[in-house]
Design a protein around this nucleic acid. Structure first.
Lengths: 195, 195
DNA sequence: CGTCCGCTTGACTCAGATCAAACTTGGTGG
DNA sequence: CCACCAAGTTTGATCTGAGTCAAGCGGACG
């Protein structure tokens, strides 16, 4: 899941710690960089004309955000730390320069974006499945398809539940049902598909 | 919504008509092109080891699909026409060559992908809103934020409902409630936000 | 003129959200 | 080393809102 290699020259990459509640940038700020969450969580939200704000995304461990900053002069949303968070900073200029010098790097980044598009689309599709049980099964199949036939989640199952649009209670219940029915095997955060 | 400009040299672009049920490519086929749906709908689905298939995405009017083909030798899913569909074919080689010759084109495509990432993320976020009414309001705010304060949907409201994860009945009901409460103004597929 | 499809509204049902409470685990600090 | 606290996990009981089924309307299109 964590395909977070940005082709920024190492010398140009820095890190920063944000305290819970701290703002990384505001909507309208001049764009300077794109970011990767090392640990923590960044909330992205957009202000509307009426003063309201709508949540756009939560970036978790290993995820990149504000990629579009590369193609825009200003940020289109606020970025605020949900909890204490460490981020990696990839200056826009360094990245763009790297792309200009070495087109292969541009292709690498392009591939990174393309994979994200695919991944997000399939996550959206999963949300169209109404039944909690079926949704969990399809999700597991998707996650497990690549490696062997089991997966060990890095984050609490609670968070996995949220990411597929279920309350954690519902998610735990489905897992124990599936286990009882012998469709999966569990060991903490390690889940294996049977059959 | 329809940001579908691919920087393929015009001479290299062709179109093709698919009948309902016809297959464009199979999982495992050698990748030759990426595509845009002009009109119709393409279903993307992935086969699993157990013989089952899971739906990955439905590409509708104006949408691109199989972008990842640029970075892979084989397709990772099947593409089948849901109904009679016309597509635009952008040969992989022509695109990659164009990128190599003119890095600006690569940046254009990159920007296209980045926008899609942003857009998909916000669609995903909208699905986290449980209340149908609130979900519709946030969706409308997102869609309308850019242009004036109203939007005219190109596709039937029925399809819009599906795209935000509501049954069409629920969607129609919410719309008429919002209209009754004076929060929106409607005229067929044209919807304006009030306030 | 008839058929299909999008739209609309009503009634009912139930799956999953929500509220609640207990248990486990892990880390922290005294 | 243990007491304590926070967070994750688990299970139970209840409730509600969106899905589903059903039925009617009207416009587009052949």
């Amino acid at each position: 899941m964590t395909y977070t290699q940005l082709p920024t020259p190492k010398a140009e990459v820095s890190t920063q710690r944000l305290l819970k509640g701290e703002t990384l940038f505001y909507q309208g700020d001049h764009t300077a960089a794109i970011f990767i969450v090392i640990t923590g969580r960044i909330r992205l939200l957009r202000h509307l004309a009426d003063g309201n704000a709508i949540p756009l995304y939560f970036a978790n461990d290993g995820e990149t955000f504000s990629e579009a900053a590369l193609f825009s002069d200003v940020y289109h949303c606020d970025a605020i730390a949900e909890k204490n968070t460490e981020i990696e900073i990839h200056p826009k200029k360094a990245l763009l320069d790297a792309f200009a010098v070495n087109p292969d790097l541009a292709m690498t980044f392009m591939a990174h974006l393309a994979r994200q598009v695919i991944n997000l689309r399939s996550r959206l599709e999963i949300r169209n499945i109404r039944s909690a049980e079926e949704r969990v099964i399809q999700f597991l199949k998707l996650e497990i398809s690549d490696p062997g036939n089991s997966i060990t989640f890095a984050s609490p199952l609670k968070d996995i539940a949220a990411s597929i649009g279920l309350s954690h209670e519902a998610f735990y219940r489905v897992l124990s049902t599936l286990e009882r029915e012998g469709k999966i095997v569990r060991e903490g955060r390690k889940i294996g598909l049977v059959g």
